[in-house]
């Protein structure tokens, strides 16, 4: 299954059935709550028992918000999908919900929020789902407004799935341009499925407490069985590690006719919309080779 970001815009993808699926799957609930626990840990709020005012950006049906409530904090949740928020209402989450697009800015008064978390949401900003969308501008609007609304010294922890290095670079650069200090913490970097990237940002100039915490499993240790549930499917077919060179080669599929010009033009248009440099379409684009080539 490709990641949801590649299938449809968030407000379309998370329709009623998808929202329900998302919230009834015990596997997703468990992963979500584990990520939010970790995000809250990285947020490093002072341990004085005083509730804080937090943001949950891309709160969806409020799974991550529940973790915040369990720790006694108050939160405001942002999401673009109405169906997801409807499910959140049904689940009677404690936080306040807002239907909004984070790429348009958060729209909060300056300096009022004590911290922000976001679970698997920021990568959506890298997509241009409408012709008017420019990922760079949307990232700028998001991080700019996030920086403004956070109190000085407050932290934001944004867990995201970047498609490639360029995307993650784009996100981090946008955050730094907005004035944040910090960087990416990667948990379980050696596992393909348990690997999680957290963008840990601190509002204000760099100081002692802006140093990055360590990611889990960085020194090569694999995550324990307990942490590995998500990488094994329900039917229990655990994969055994194979050295790359011993792995049997996949046989390449050979199609007779290739993919054709239409397919190529569509792909180029897609890449253009995502902001990549793509050569212009000419009469040479996707033409057939001469038979004697």
């Amino acid at each position: 299954m490709p990641r949801p970001e590649f299938q449809a815009p968030p407000d379309v993808f998370y329709n009623e059935s998808e929202a329900r699926k998302y919230t009834t799957s015990s596997r997703i609930i468990e992963i979500q709550s584990r990520i939010s626990e970790r995000a809250l840990e990285l947020l490093a709020l002072p341990n004085d028992g005083v509730p804080k005012m937090l943001l949950d950006i891309g709160c969806g049906s409020g799974l991550s918000g529940e973790t915040l409530t369990e720790h006694g904090h108050h939160w405001i949740g942002y999401d673009i999908s109405k169906s997801m928020l409807d499910v959140a209402l049904e689940r009677e989450t404690e936080g306040d919900l807002l239907l909004a697009d984070m790429g348009q800015g958060l729209g909060l008064r300056p300096g009022v929020i004590d911290g922000a978390i976001s679970i698997s949401a920021v990568q959506w900003l890298c997509n241009a789902d409408k012709s008017s969308h420019d990922p760079r501008l949307r990232l700028k609007a998001f991080f700019g407004s996030l920086y403004r609304c956070l109190a000085r010294g407050a932290r934001a922890v944004l867990q995201f799935y970047a498609d490639n290095v360029k995307q993650s670079e784009m996100i981090v650069t946008a955050a730094m341009r907005a004035g944040f200090a910090g960087g990416v913490v990667v948990d379980w970097p050696h596992s393909s499925k348990a690997k999680k990237s957290y963008l840990v940002l601190t509002c204000g100039p760099p100081s002692v407490n802006t140093s990055l915490p360590k990611g889990k499993g960085e020194n090569g240790e694999m995550c324990s069985d307990d942490d590995d549930n998500e990488s094994s499917d329900e039917d229990g077919d655990r994969t055994v590690g194979i050295y790359e060179r011993n792995r049997p080669k996949k046989r390449q599929k050979t199609k007779k006719n290739g993919k054709g010009k239409d397919w190529l033009l569509k792909k180029k248009e897609q890449m253009r919309r995502r902001g990549h440099d793509v050569p212009a379409d000419t009469k040479y684009t996707g033409r057939k080779r001469k038979s004697y080539f």
Partner: peptide, 20 residues
């Protein structure tokens, strides 16, 4: 929506100076 949220919320429509 609680009044706490209302107290923090501002509009960011184009053309709004503070929106609050």
């Amino acid at each position: 929506m609680r009044l706490l949220t209302h107290n923090m919320l501002a509009s960011n429509v184009r053309g709004a100076t503070t929106g609050y």
